[in-house]
Amino acid sequence: MADITRQQIGSLLAKQGILIAFVAFLIGFTIANPKFLTPDNVLSVIRSSAILGVMALGVTFVVISGNLDLSVGSMMSFSTIVVLDLHDKIGPALAIPAMFAMTLALGALIGFLVGYLKLNSLIVTLGMLSAIHGLTLTYSGGKNMDIVDKEGTWFSVFGQGTALGLPIPILMFIGVAALLGLILSRTSFGRKVYAVGGNGTAATFSGIPRARTVFMCYLISAACVATAGLIQASRSLGSQNTVGQGLELEVLAAVILGGASLLGGSGTIFKTVIGVLILGFIQNGLLLIGLQFYVQFIVTWVIIILAVWLDIAAKRGKLWSPIA
């Protein structure tokens, strides 16, 4: 009898572990600091998660298609630096589309290498992480980038403005999530993404253009990175050229926390939004109970490991098994 109960608990933990852990976190943090669940704090968590969140939405497509994107952090630095630089040179109205075009070109390059040439996405995007970082440094001459006239530009609206009583970054996060959610769950392209990630061979045998589908996923990811770079640049109106460094792992953590499998074929936009919020609340909670900011890097790693473990455990219905 005791054995059965233990098995059931194990299986429940395996299937709902993330949610159980999240609820435990929330209760713990609220007891430790009553400010945690106030509307002000909740809004601030969502706003500070918006940049990461928008990037995670794009990476969700890539992960469902069965690939990885580790280049989003350094690509976001690139977008931010480029749009800030061009702002003073050609004005914001032209700087924004120019920055989007350049970021999309990077996404297209990755999409070509992974989709059409069928190179391993881990290697390609890990390489791109470094290469784009180099590109950003070359472009900026290694210097930080600042807008000269910070008071007089309408460019600040994307990061600092409000509408309908909500900060614009939150509205952009919601808007992109709604759009991509519809694309993924309702369009034929979305269905192809699941098919290609679930079983690429079977997708090919059904006439699905596998290479083009993967290519499009990286374009979507790049478009999201450009949007995130826009918010970032607009919020601070000046930036270091390493602003996105390390974000790729947090983005991946959020996507996996939401329940997308690294093996491809599963995950949803809604789940990724949940993953982003979980990550945001946990990091915020750690600060509120008085831990140093730096601790969050360690905690993020622990969360990734936990999420990957639970992903596998949920598949086999047990926390531990002698065979994979």
């Binding site: 269905r191 699941y194 061979t201 079977a202 997708a203 045998f205 059904s206 074929g265």
Partner: peptide, 17 residues
């Protein structure tokens, strides 16, 4: 390996092509 996306539901597999 070639005929089905096992993680997908019945309907979606059937209408895939």
């Amino acid at each position: 390996g070639q005929g089905l996306v096992l993680g997908m539901n019945c309907r979606d597999n059937m209408t895939l092509p």
